Computed example of a mutant assay.
Amino acid sequence: MSSCSPSITTMIRMDHTHVMAAFHRYHAQTPWWRKRAIVELACTALEIHAQLEEEIFYPALSEVMAGDERLTKSKPEHDAMREEIAKLRAMGPQDAAYDARFRQLMREVMHHVADEETVLLPTAERALASQLSELGMRMTKRRMQLVAQHHPSAIAANTAGTFPLASLAVISLGALAIARCLRPAGARRIARDA
C-alpha cells in the first residue's frame, strides 16, 4: 500500500504549490467575499500542513539532522505563522490592515517554503529515501483526520471561492460521470457501439 502513496516530500511540495496558488489569487481589488475565502483556505491549509510536518516529517528528519539549525527553526516559524493566522481571523476583509496582514503571512510562508524546498526536502530525499512512501502514507491518513476536524464543507466552499473555474470543472466532470453511470445499460451499449 505504501508504494501507492506519494512520497512525503512530494506531498509537502504539493501543499506548498496549493497555498502559493491561493496566495496568487489574492489582490487588493478582489471582492471581500473572495478575499475571505482565499484567506480561510490558505490559513486552514497552512495549519493542517504545519501540524502534519510537526507530527510526521520533522521527527523523521530529526533522526538524520539532529541539532541542525534549519530544522530547529522550523517549529518557531510555524508558531509565528499561527500567530499571523490568529490575527487575520480576528479581523475581516473590510479592515484596512487585512491586505497588509495577509501579505505579511505570505512573505513568512514563502521564506519558510524556500528553506524547506532548498534544504530540508532534498536532505530528506537522500537520507530517508527508503521511508518516503511510508511517511507519505502516514501523512495521508493523518491529513484525512485533520480535514475532518476542520469542517470539510467550509473547506469545500472556500476552495470554490478561491478556485471557481477549477471547482466548476470538477463538479461538471463529476456530474457527467454520475449521469453516465445512471444511464440505462441499453443506452450505454448503444452509445458504445455507435
Rank of each mutant, 00 (worst) to 15 (best):
C4G: 10
T9C: 05
T10H: 10
I12P: 00
R13M: 04
T17E: 15
A21P: 00
A21C: 05
A22N: 05
F23Y: 15
H24T: 01
H27F: 09
Q29G: 03
Q29F: 07
T30Q: 04
W33Q: 10
R34Y: 01
K35L: 06
R36W: 08
A37W: 01
E40R: 14
C43H: 06
T44S: 08
T44K: 08
I48M: 09
I48A: 04
I48V: 13
H49C: 05
H49S: 09
H49M: 09
E53W: 04
E53R: 06
E54R: 08
Y58K: 04
P59E: 15
P59N: 12
P59Y: 11
E63C: 07
E63Q: 14
V64A: 13
A66H: 11
R70P: 00
K73N: 03
K73A: 06
S74Q: 12
P76C: 10
H78M: 13
D79Q: 13
M81S: 11
R82I: 04
E83R: 05
E83K: 10
A86E: 14
K87Q: 14
L88V: 05
A90Q: 12
A90D: 14
M91E: 02
G92K: 09
G92Q: 09
G92S: 15
P93K: 03
Q94P: 00
D95L: 03
A97K: 06
Y98K: 00
A100R: 11
A100E: 14
R101W: 04
Q104N: 15
L105H: 01
R107T: 12
M110C: 10
H112D: 01
D115A: 03
E116D: 09
E117C: 10
V119T: 12
L120E: 00
L121N: 02
A124P: 02
A124W: 02
A124Y: 01
A124E: 07
R126D: 14
R126W: 03
A127F: 11
A127I: 01
A129K: 06
Q131H: 10
Q131P: 00
L132W: 03
S133T: 07
S133R: 12
L135R: 08
L135A: 09
M137Y: 13
M137P: 00
R138L: 12
R138F: 01
M139E: 14
K141V: 13
K141A: 13
R143D: 06
M144D: 12
L146F: 03
V147Y: 05
H150F: 09
A154K: 07
A154R: 08
I155R: 05
I155H: 04
I155K: 03
I155M: 10
A157G: 08
A157I: 10
T159D: 03
A160Y: 09
G161I: 08
T162E: 08
T162A: 11
F163E: 08
A166L: 13
A169Q: 07
I171D: 13
L173M: 11
G174P: 01
L176W: 05
L176S: 12
A179D: 02
R180S: 04
R180H: 08
R183M: 15
A185Q: 05
R189D: 03
D193E: 14
